[in-house]
């Protein structure tokens, strides 16, 4: 067993970029504290690499060639692709692990078809999590993308299969691997409805993670998700992949819908690894 940590956290450019616009600073700071606690919990597990299962936003992939799943196997990655002033995260280079990325990718491919990329540009979907989880950018990162931007989307049972394949792959390598899934739950990012959050829908989704209820997690349809949780809701794929990798229930460490300026409900959690 080389999967030593599995968790989830929210990403959104506003979490760093619009931090100074927040009115309820105490909730924002509590969120940041929980993210810092997540950093410590990851560090305590002494991982050799952090796999970030994310939903990138046209940083590397466009509709000319959009993979359902892609693993970044480059020596290093650079970001943010966005204006650093806008995101309020300086441009930096993050170490990868090409050798481990290759081995993980090869194992995953035994059961799930994935694309790979030796060149990867990091957008806010990964830079915001790294800003909190590896602020010195000294832990090698293997980025993973699941297309969550628009259909055709990988069905949720395939996302689950990908998460399981990732776990199996981790079991074949001697390195200690930490995995986080980062997405939003319900949200309508970068649209006129930015800031809208369906907290009831979020809480139900998180409860399914807490119960490790695979059947309930995979029962969402994209049509219903779009209607009730917005196009941002497609990003539940990242959480579901992390849940499948972990196999156990989620210990929800933080959730709030009271930071709509971030345009997403803010979540931090850690899975039990079974």
């Amino acid at each position: 067993m080389s999967l030593v940590y599995a968790g989830v956290l929210s990403h959104a450019p506003g979490i760093t970029g619009r931090a100074d616009l927040v009115r309820d600073v105490s909730i924002r700071n509590e969120f940041y504290e929980k993210l810092d606690r997540q950093r410590k919990e990851i560090e305590e597990m002494q991982p050799d690499v952090l796999v970030v299962v994310a939903a990138e936003h046209f940083a590397n992939f466009f509709m000319n060639n959009m993979p359902a799943f892609c693993v970044g196997i480059g020596e290093e990655h650079a970001g943010p692709i966005e204006d650093p002033e806008w995101l309020k995260i300086p441009y930096t280079t993050v170490p990868g692990n090409a050798d481990l990325g290759n081995r993980l990718c090869t194992e995953i491919m035994k059961s799930v078809d994935v694309a790979y990329a030796e060149e990867w540009k990091l957008d806010h979907g990964i830079m915001v999590p790294l800003h909190f989880l590896t602020p010195r950018y000294d832990l090698p990162v293997i980025p993973v993308n699941i297309n969550c931007q628009g259909p055709p989307l990988a069905p949720l049972h395939r996302v689950w299969a990908f998460g399981q394949a990732l776990k199996r792959a981790c079991g074949t390598v001697p390195e200690r691997v930490a995995v986080v899934g980062t997405g939003g739950i319900s949200h309508w990012p970068a649209t006129p409805d930015s800031g809208k959050i369906n907290a009831e829908w979020d809480v139900e989704f998180l409860d399914r993670l807490r119960r490790a209820d695979k059947k309930a997690l995979l029962s969402y349809t994209d049509e219903a998700t779009y209607r009730e949780a917005g196009q941002g809701g497609f990003e539940i794929r990242t959480f579901i992949a992390a849940a499948a990798a972990a196999g156990g229930p989620l210990n929800l460490q933080f959730y709030t819908a009271k930071l709509p300026i971030f345009a997403v409900g803010c979540t931090v959690g850690r899975f039990e690894i079974l």
């Binding site: 009115r23 931007q149 309508w188 006129p192 409805d193 779009y226 709509p260 300026i261």
Partner: peptide, 17 residues
């Protein structure tokens, strides 16, 4: 066209705004 249809009325969802 595209992934969006108007699911809201374009109201403002943040106190800040």
């Amino acid at each position: 066209a595209g992934v969006y249809a108007m699911t809201g009325g374009g109201e403002r969802f943040t106190q800040e705004e």
